[in-house]
Simulated scan of single mutants.
Amino acid sequence: RIDTLVNNAGIFVAKPFTDYTQADYAAVTGVNLAGFFRITQLAVERMLAQGGGHIVNLTTSLVDNADARVPSVLASLTKGGLQSATKSLAIEYAARGIRVNAVSPGTIKTPMHPQATHEALAGLHPVGRMGEPGDIADAVIYLENAPFVTGEILHVDGGMSAGH
C-alpha cells in the first residue's frame, strides 16, 4: 500500500535571474518538477486501486512572497508549479478519496544552510529565527490527520507569508 506520499526532494539555487545557467535550470526543474511528476503518477495509480491516499508536496513561501534579499526565480517557477499542481490534483481526485496538500516552508535549519549563514537567514523571518525540521514534520503530520483538508497550502514560515 501507499497511504501517503511526501514529495520532499528539492533543489534551491539562489542567484540573480540572468546568472542562472542551463545546467541550473536542468537540475532544478529535473528534481523539483520531473521528480515530483513521475513518482506522484505512480502513487496516484496505487492510491486509486486501493481506494484512497494522501499526497503532501513541499514548496516554499517565496512562491507567495518574493524577497529582494533572496533572488530565487527557479524556486518560484518550480515550487510555484507544485503549489498549483497541489490544488489541481486535490480537485481532480477529491471524489476518489485522494487528498493533496502542500507545506510551504520558510528557511529551515538543514545541512543545506551552513551554520555561518544562520543568523542572516533568521533575519528573513518575522519571528526572528529559522525553522526546525520538526516544524515541517509537525505540519505534515497535521495534514495527515486532517481528513477534511485537501488543496491546502500550509505556510510554516515564521510569518514570512504574512509580510515584512
Score class of each variant (00 low, 15 high):
A66L: 02
F17V: 15
P111W: 07
H164E: 06
D138W: 04
A102V: 10
I141N: 08
K79S: 14
S104T: 06
V28F: 01
Y25F: 15
I98R: 12
E45G: 11
V149F: 04
T4I: 15
F12C: 11
L62W: 01
E119W: 04
V13L: 12
A116R: 12
I136D: 02
T21S: 15
T4A: 06
A75V: 14
S72R: 01
P71I: 13
A102W: 09
A68Y: 02
P126L: 02
A66P: 05
N8T: 09
G163H: 03
A139W: 12
G134Y: 06
T18M: 00
E152L: 13
A122V: 04
P71A: 15
A90L: 08
Q41I: 05
A75G: 11
V31S: 02
Q22Y: 15
A9R: 09
R38H: 07
R129F: 04
S72A: 15
S88V: 14
V103P: 11
S76P: 00
G106Q: 07
D157R: 08
S72D: 10
Q41K: 15
K87L: 04
G53Y: 08
M112D: 13
R38C: 00
A94K: 14
L48N: 01
S84Q: 13
N57V: 04
I141M: 05
G53F: 11
V31A: 10
G128M: 03
P133E: 04
A14T: 14
L89N: 09
H118G: 13
V13Y: 03
T29K: 03
H125I: 01
P105F: 07
A68M: 09
P71N: 13
K79P: 13
T110L: 08
G151I: 00
R99E: 07
R46I: 11
A102K: 07
A34P: 03
I136G: 00
L74T: 05
A75W: 00
E119C: 07
G163R: 02
Q41D: 10
Y93P: 00
P133W: 07
V100H: 04
A27D: 05
V73C: 14
A120N: 09
N101I: 02
M47Q: 01
G51S: 10
P111V: 11
A23K: 11
I11Y: 10
A95H: 14
R96Q: 15
E132C: 05
A95I: 11
R1F: 12
M130V: 05
F17S: 15
A26E: 05
R96T: 12
M130W: 02
A49D: 11
A95N: 14
N7A: 03
N32Q: 10
A43Q: 13
D157W: 03
T110D: 08
P114Q: 07
E152K: 12
N57A: 07
A66K: 02
N8I: 09
G159A: 12
G10A: 06
A146H: 04
L48T: 06
S61Y: 03
D135S: 00
F17P: 12
R99D: 07
D19P: 03
H155F: 09
M130E: 01
V56F: 04
A23W: 11
